[in-house]
Design a protein around this nucleic acid. Structure first.
Length: 110
RNA sequence: UGACUUAGCUGUGCGGCAGCGCUCGUAUUCGGGCGAGGAAAGUCCGGGCAUCACAGGACAGGAUAGCUGCUAACGGCAGCCGAAGGCGACUUUAGGGCUUAGUGCAACAGAGAUAUACCGCCUACCGCAUCUAUACUGAUGCGAGGUAAGGGUGGAAAGGCGAGGUAAGAGCUCACCGGCACACGGGAGACCGUGUGGCCAUGUAAACCCUAUCCGAUGCAACACCGACCGAGGGGUUAUCGCUUGUCCGGCGCUCUCGACGGGUGGCAGGAGCGGUUACGGCGACGUACCGCCAAGAUAGAUUGCCGUGUAAACAGAACCCGGCUUACAGGCUAAGUCAUUCC
RNA sequence: CUGUCCGUAGCUCAAUUGGAUAGAGUACCAGACUCCGACUCUGGCGGUUGUGGGUUCGAUUCCCGCCGGGCAGA
């Protein structure tokens, strides 16, 4: 995952929400946006609606693990991605989430 | 065997593949080491640390409230005292002062709420009337009083209860109990015991308040350092130059100080540290000595993902650090003790 | 991290220094009015005062612990 970087600033998340294309699933919501640069960036959002800090941390870990598996198989350069965790995310397995995310990326035209 | 009481421990284990943070090394690759909790939580107290302020005192504001100790300190803890609950082991307890500062409040009910006479009881003493009578006699009623026993109201009705006493009653007198004051004795103290006294005006201070003790303010987004940029002020006039729309005036350039903004590094993990079937002191909290150990340090935030095995896996994730408190918590285990029943 | 304020009917708000079936408007239901609706009038329904304790004779009110939320500052 050496070329993947994380989104940190609030304005970068907002740019993905307003200008990016999105796809929803009970496990995760995906936003995709071209970023006109060499590397790929991603961000994960886990709100307080999901639960306490343990559940929010697990949701982020599961999404990160699924993304790292996808990153080994396909080229993600030139895109910003934002993943929004939902309440079912913390109960899911990363292999299930991998299928959902890669399907989302196909549909959004990666 | 059953029902309990108290104190504590543990709170997923093993294997395979892939991966994350810090750190060390022979260091692009690679390998070694370490990697969340009893509450990390809530942020309710106390302290360390940092910066600023500060001669000293007082007021205001806030906190605490039986005593003695422990502690760096505390609103914490330990032991004890008083009170309440439990057959008991034991548990709970904001527990100073409204009788010796002062003020406030006490709805409704009730005759009366800090002082009273509605019903009742009584006629010893005083007055009147009637009856009786030899009478300075007695009876009844009314007036006029006495009374706080009984009734009823209330959370609370002038200490409780019993006896004496009385016209009826009353701490009016006495015994016991409660409470208050004083004295003596015991104790480190809260307090306890004994005696004497007079018969003693309700509750509320988690009402204002009084008394005693304590508290400077701000918080790691503190604070220190680093380089660039912006603003204000001072100095300088190298300037025949460059920028400020062409010209003139003026300003800027260089340097110093201060401020603000965002970025990086430190602060930041050796500490009131952890462990000990160690020794000593103490009922205990804890202290002293000795031995051993170094065990997360991120910065959108690491401790994981998948698979196998295992009857089942709670509450829950460090963000400057520590001591407590409070709250959440499936299952399992240990120790000490109490009561009841049965048997010996 | 720190400070501060607030939880009352489905909704918006009251309740005097603690005093008794917690009160208004609105919404809902029923009736009246109307040919029928609306408006209006009358009546009714609706509350564990966020929650668990304590102080008090008595707590929406005072005190403490939790739960939820708002605001402000760094």
């Amino acid at each position: 995952m050496n070329y993947l970087k994380t989104l940190t600033l609030n304005k970068e998340f907002k740019r993905a929400y307003y200008q990016g294309k999105s796809k929803a699933h009970p496990l995760v919501i995906t936003y995709l946006l071209k970023n006109r640069r060499n590397g790929a960036r991603y961000g994960v959002t886990a709100s307080k609606k999901i639960g306490n800090a343990v559940l929010r941390n697990r949701a982020r870990r599961v999404i990160t693990a699924a993304l790292s598996q996808i990153e080994n198989e396909r080229n993600l350069r030139g895109f910003d991605m934002v993943f929004v965790a939902r309440s079912a995310t913390c109960k899911a397995k990363s292999t299930d989430l991998k299928k959902v995310i890669s399907k989302h990326l196909d549909l959004l035209g990666l």
